[in-house]
Simulated assay, not measured.
Amino acid sequence: MSTLNPFVSIRRDLHKIPELGFQEFKTQRYILDYVGGLPQEHLEVETWKTAVFVRVKGKNPSKTIGYRADMDGLPILEETSLPFSSEHPEQMHACGHDIHMSIALGVLTRFAEEPAADNILFIFQPAEEGPGGAAPLMNTDTMQKWKPDMIVALHIAPEYPVGTIAIKEGLLFANTSELFIDLKGKGGHAAYPHLTNDMVIAACSLVGQLQTVVSRNVDPLDSAVITIGKITGGTVQNIIAENARLEGTIRTLSVDSMKKVKQRVKELIKGVEIGYQCEASIDFGCMYHEVNNESTLTREFMEFAARQEGITVFECSEQMTGEDFGFMLNEIPGFMFWLGANSEFGLHHSKINPDESAIETAINLLIPYLRYKGE
C-alpha cells in the first residue's frame, strides 16, 4: 500500500472495480484476500453468492452485534477524472459503497487484533442498488446461524461536512418500489398516423397522468413521489412507435400509501389501454422496506457520538431515499445513520467525489462504539 491511510488506499482500490448487484466477484475476492491477511485466531468467514460474512468471536460472548456494509456499484459512466477512476465501463461507485466497505474493513481490522467480549458479525452485502440483496441474505443459513442481536449501518451523505453524524429515531428512509410499464400499440409510416396507435403519444400522456397520483390521491400531510427516470420508444424518426417503455420508482413514507399509489397507477394504465387502444403491462420490480431506527439504540448512539471528539450529531428529518437495510431492521433492532462526506455532487451523480477523511472519522467512531456495546 501507499503512504496513504491504508483504508483510503483500500477505498481507492475498490473504487476502481465497481460491479453491479450479484456480480461483485472482484470485490468479494478483494475482501476475502484482505481478511485472509488479518490475524485468524478469532475469525470465522463464510460466503453466500457474492456476500462475505466475517464473525469476530468474542472473548466471553453473550450476544452478537452486526455491522453491515453494502458492496455494489451503479450503471453510471464515471466523470470524476480521478486517478483511481472506475476501470469498468459504465459502472461506478456513485453511492459510496466503496467508502462503506473500507470503513467496515478498518473496524474489522481492529477487532481481529483486539476482540470485544461479544461476537461482532461483519456483513458485506451485495446488490443493495438492485435487485436487492438484504432480503434473501436474511434467509441464508449463515445469517440464521449467526443472526445478530442488534445491527448497525451507515450511508455517506455528500451534503453534510465531514464529522457530522445525521440520524433520527424511527422512520429514516422511505418504502421504495421499482416501476416498469410496457406499452404495445400499432406502428406504421409517419405520414399515416391515422392508421396507427402511437405509443410515444401514449407514453407521454401516461407520464403526465402519473404525476397526478401524488397530488390528488395521497393525503397532503403524507409524503410520496413517483419518478419516471427513463423512457424508450420507437426505432427511427419516420416510423410511428409501436412500443414504448417507462421505467421509474415509487417512494412513500407508509406501507398503506404505497398500496394506494400502486392501485392508482394500475387504474391509470387501464385507462391508457382503452384511450390509446393498446396493450399495457406493469411490473413493480423489487420493493424495499422502510428504514426504521429502533428508538432506544438510536438515542443511545446519538448520546455516545456526541461525546466523541470531532463529531457533531445532527437530528435530521426522514428522507425519500430507499435502502434495503430496512429488511434487516425489520427483523433485528438497530439503526442506520448518515455520515457527512462533503461532496459538491450528490449520490448517484457521475462526478460525486466524497471527502476521504470521512473514512477515518467513521472508523474512529465505530470502534469505540461497537466495543462499548460489546463489553
Rank of each mutant, 00 (worst) to 15 (best):
W146L: 04
I167T: 05
A174D: 12
L179Y: 00
E169C: 05
L171F: 00
A174H: 10
F173V: 02
L172Y: 08
L171C: 10
Y160L: 08
S177N: 07
I156P: 01
K168Q: 14
E159M: 09
T164F: 15
S177I: 14
I151Q: 03
K147R: 15
L172T: 06
V152N: 04
A157C: 09
M150D: 14
E169W: 00
V162I: 04
D149A: 08
S177Y: 10
I151L: 10
P158E: 14
E169A: 15
D149R: 08
A157G: 02
E178H: 04
G163T: 15
A174Y: 08
F173C: 07
S177A: 12
A157M: 09
L171M: 13
T176I: 13
A166I: 07
V152S: 03
L171E: 11
F173D: 03
G170V: 01
T176H: 02
G170P: 11
V162L: 04
I167F: 10
E159I: 03
K168W: 01
L171P: 12
K168Y: 00
F180G: 01
I156E: 03
I167A: 07
L172F: 12
H155T: 05
L171D: 04
A157T: 03
I151G: 00
D149C: 11
V152M: 12
K168V: 03
F173N: 07
I156N: 08
A153S: 08
G170D: 11
P161S: 12
A153W: 09
W146D: 11
A153T: 09
I167N: 14
G163C: 14
K147L: 01
E169Y: 00
I156T: 03
M150E: 12
T164H: 11
P148T: 06
L172V: 09
P158L: 05
Y160M: 05
A153L: 02
M150R: 11
G170M: 03
P158H: 11
W146F: 00
G163M: 08
P148K: 12
P148I: 11
L154A: 06
A174K: 05
P161D: 15
A166Q: 07
G163W: 09
I181P: 15
V162G: 02
K168N: 15
Y160C: 01
I165V: 10
P161H: 05
E178A: 12
F173S: 03
T164I: 09
P148A: 08
I167C: 09
P148W: 07
E169T: 15
G170Q: 04
A153D: 05
I151F: 04
I167K: 05
I156V: 10
L154I: 06
T164A: 01
N175C: 07
P148H: 15
I181A: 01
E178V: 04
N175R: 08
P161R: 12
I181F: 00
E169S: 08
F180C: 10
D149W: 12
K168T: 08
S177C: 05
E159H: 10
W146Q: 05
H155S: 05
P148D: 10
E159Y: 12
V162W: 13
A157Y: 09
V152W: 14
P158T: 11
E169P: 00
V152D: 00
A166R: 08
G170T: 07
P148R: 09
E159D: 12
K147C: 08
H155Q: 04
K147T: 04
L179I: 01
E169G: 03
D149E: 13
T164R: 13
E169Q: 13
I151S: 02
H155P: 06
F173T: 09
